[in-house]
Design a protein around this nucleic acid. Structure first.
Lengths: 208, 208
DNA sequence: AGCAATTATGTTCAAATGAACATAATAAGA
DNA sequence: TCTTATTATGTTCATTTGAACATAATTGCT
């Protein structure tokens, strides 16, 4: 797909962006590769753009070459609680952010992505611990077996969504916690796509 | 710490960087806030920089204002295997990258941070699954109870480091796997600080 | 040999951009 | 009231930077 030289140039751009936070100017690229002419760089950029490896804010003179880096980072807000529908989500309720490259998040393009901090051990058999940050997606289709954030009694809880004989219920992944059969309606707020754990150092944990 | 206006400007810069991938030029900031003079922006930038909210590539004309956003992102290389000491780590063996904000990583400033993709279920009782990306730190002090990547027979494995009566051994967090008592030397490559899981959608998993 | 894509050079231009300087209104505090 | 920080305006300059044009060497393919 790419020639060696083109790959080198792309690599340099990505590295610079990662390390300096800004993409290099065409002339900086020129200097790095010890090219006598800046036009060479223009040609590389054109090729890389044509092949879809670069995305530019064309014409605008600034840091014009922004690497459509394979590691595109999504900034995911962590909510403490989700009061009602996703529509009510404002910046106010944000507890923090997780920034993660899209490759690590299992998210599709459709839904909005957000995160919740897990409270309690009700999902411990699904290997989700108290304190874990679960990344969810506000998605339409929920399949049986998905781990979801659902609204129960005005509280958001994380459970496994199970369809049994056409009827959905919420399964806790811990024998000590009851399953929840929705009385009327079941409001699914998001489907789990990823998880981020901040590991506590040297704290021996036991299974409960 | 910041005035309302300064906070607005900082917010705009951060938002632009997130959404467009590039920080705005001073004149773009000027236009957004409908300021008649670009100098106003220069003053805001100076103030924000003085107070430590901005980090610039001064003089260099480009996308000069790069937000030292509170969510500083570390780019962590994922290694397939770690052949020997950390010193041998080259770009070649890199399998990919995880990009994560430093707040989510439990890393200190001392050590180098890297990641490994977990193979197998030997740590399942510590809630670390096959396929998880474990983020580790090349650190000096290892404490009993830490989960570590260690070199055993030329292979890197993830185990819990336990000190018992002054003698260290490596404990698998799965009764089906044996503990490892080092014959001679124990080479610890890193201590686990975080974990990133890409959750597979709707794949009912069983405990093994 | 002929053709196309890639790689490379040299030159020139216009636009984008950070920087500097003088000046002034407003608000807060001593 | 005096002082200081913040906010704001207007102007000018030097650099940075992307873009365009003509030209040519190299490589691979037909």
């Amino acid at each position: 797909m790419l020639t060696d030289r083109q790959r080198d140039v792309l690599g340099f751009i990505q590295r610079e962006q990662r390390e300096r936070g800004v993409t290099p100017s065409t002339r900086e690229i020129q200097q790095h590769f010890k090219l006598a002419s800046q036009t060479s760089v223009m040609q590389y950029i054109a090729a890389l753009e044509r092949k879809g490896f670069l995305d530019r804010q064309a014409r605008k003179a600034r840091s014009l070459v922004t690497a459509m880096q394979k590691v595109r980072i999504t900034d995911i807000p962590i909510y403490g609680q989700i009061p009602a529908g996703m529509s009510v989500l404002t910046e106010q309720t944000v507890e923090g952010h997780v920034s993660l490259d899209t490759a690590s998040v299992n998210a599709s393009k459709n839904g909005r992505t957000f995160a919740l901090r897990v409270r309690g051990d009700s999902m411990i058999d699904a290997h989700i611990l108290d304190g874990d940050v679960v990344i969810l997606e506000d998605r339409k289709e929920v399949r049986s077996g998905d781990i979801v954030a659902a609204l129960i009694d005005g509280e958001t809880t994380l459970k496994r969504y199970v369809l049994e004989r056409g009827r959905p219920y919420l399964k806790a992944e811990n024998p000590l916690f009851p399953n929840l059969v929705p009385a009327q309606e079941l409001l699914i707020q998001g489907v789990m796509v990823s998880l981020v754990r901040k590991h506590l150092p040297a704290t021996p944990r036991r299974r409960i």
